[in-house]
C-alpha cells in the first residue's frame, strides 16, 4: 500500500449509512492506492453503490469518513479534475446528444469544449456524437458514462459496474483501458457483483457483504485463500464415513451416504488413506473451487450456511478512529 498522504489515495474510515432501519453500510474501512486497479466487490445490495455515493458527496454518511487524498469530495477544488466517477444509474437526459451531454459538464469540470470530442473518440463513440442518448444501447451508455468520467483527465477513477451491458469485445476493451489508466499511475476503483467479470483486470480486491468488509487484499493473496476440495464416492458408505472421521478431514456440502466433499486435503492423501483402510473408491476428484467460488463463500450469509469460517483480513483499515 502506498503512503496515505498521496493525493490519489481513497480512504474509507469507519463509514456507516442507515436508510431508516436499514444499515446499508456498516462500519466500513478500507484504502485504495494509486497505480493499481482495485475491484470493489460484493453481491447486489452489499452497499457498494452507497459507499461510492458517500465518497462522492452525493449521500451523507451517518457516521465515519470517506476521503480522496485526505479531503472529502465536497472539499475538493474542481473535483472533476481530481475524481472521475461513473455510477451505475448512468444518468443522461434522453433528449440530449452525446456531445451536448459532455459539453454541458465541460465548463464545471474545467476543460475546453474540444475535450468533449476527444473523450468521445477515446471511448469509440465519435460516430454517434450528434445522436440523442435516448436511442443508445446500454453498452453505448456505459461508454458515454466512461467518457464523462475521463473528461477532466482525473487521477482517481470510480466506476460502478462499468462492464454491465458491454459485449465480450467491449469488456476486453474496458480491461485494456483500465489497465492503461492504472499504469499511468491513477487510482482505479471498479465495482462489480461478480468477481469473474473483473478477475483479469484487478490487482487488488475489496470485498464487502451486508455493508461490512469481509476481505481486502491483493488478488494473489485472495487466490491463496482458495482451499482444495476433494469429492469422494464409495459404495461402502459406513467405511467412508469412518475413514473421514478418523482422518479428521473437514467436510463441505452434501452428506449423502457414500459421498463426501472434503476441503483442505489432496486426492493423493485421501487415495492413500482409503487404500490403507481398504475402502473401495468409485470416484476421487480434486476440485479447484476457483476465485468465484471463494468469493461466493466470502460473501455468503454466514448465519444461513455452515460454510468454512473465513475471518475478515485485518490487513485493510480500521486503523484510524476518526469516526462517530
Amino acid at each position: 500500500m502506498p503512503p496515505s498522504t498521496d493525493d490519489r489515495t481513497i480512504r474509507v474510515a469507519r463509514l456507516s449509512k442507515s436508510f431508516g432501519a436499514v444499515r446499508a453500510v456498516d462500519d466500513l474501512s478500507f484504502e485504495v492506492g494509486p497505480g493499481r486497479v482495485t475491484g470493489f466487490l460484493g453481491p447486489n445490495g452489499a452497499g457498494k453503490t452507497t459507499t461510492l455515493r458517500m465518497l462522492l458527496g452525493l449521500v451523507r454518511p451517518t457516521s465515519g469518513t470517506a476521503t480522496i487524498g485526505g479531503r472529502t469530495y465536497t472539499e475538493l477544488d474542481r473535483p472533476g479534475r481530481t475524481v472521475g466517477a461513473a455510477l451505475e444509474a448512468a444518468s443522461f437526459h434522453p433528449g440530449r446528444t452525446a456531445l451536448d451531454h459532455l459539453r454541458v459538464y465541460a465548463p464545471q469540470v474545467g476543460v475546453p469544449d474540444s475535450r468533449a470530442s476527444d473523450v468521445l473518440r477515446l471511448v469509440g463513440l465519435e460516430a454517434v456524437a450528434d445522436r440523442r442518448v435516448g436511442g443508445f444501447s446500454l453498452g453505448m451508455r456505459q461508454r458515454l458514462g466512461l467518457a464523462t468520467t475521463l473528461l477532466g483527465d482525473p487521477p482517481v477513477l470510480l466506476l460502478d459496474e462499468p462492464a454491465n451491458g458491454l459485449d465480450p469485445e467491449g469488456i476486453r476493451w474496458l480491461r485494456v483501458l483500465l489497465r492503461t489508466l492504472a499504469a499511468e499511475g491513477r487510482t482505479v476503483l471498479v465495482s462489480s457483483h461478480v468477481l469473474s467479470e473483473v478477475e483479469q483486470t484487478v490487482d487488488d480486491v475489496v470485498i464487502i457483504a451486508r455493508g461490512r468488509l469481509v476481505h481486502a487484499s491483493s488478488l494473489g493473496d485472495l487466490a491463496g485463500l482458495a482451499r482444495p476440495r476433494v469429492r469422494v464416492v464409495s459404495p461402502d458408505g459406513a467405511g467412508l464415513a469412518a475413514l473421514v472421521a478418523r482422518a479428521g478431514w473437514a467436510r463441505a456440502g452434501s452428506d449423502e451416504p457414500g459421498v463426501a466433499e472434503l476441503v483442505d486435503v489432496t486426492t493423493a492423501t485421501v487415495g492413500a488413506a482409503a487404500f490403507a483402510a481398504g475402502v473401495e473408491l468409485h470416484e476421487l476428484t480434486g476440485r479447484d473451487a476457483g476465485l468465484e467460488g471463494l468469493f461466493l463463500e466470502l460473501v455468503a450469509d454466514r448465519s444461513a450456511t455452515a460454510g468454512p469460517d473465513l475471518t475478515p483480513e485485518p490487513g485493510a483499515g480500521t486503523t484510524d478512529g476518526t469516526a462517530a
Partner: peptide, 8 residues
C-alpha cells in the same frame, strides 16, 4: 448525479 459531481 453528474450535476452534483461536477459541482458538489
Amino acid at each position: 448525479t453528474p450535476t452534483f459531481l461536477a459541482e458538489p
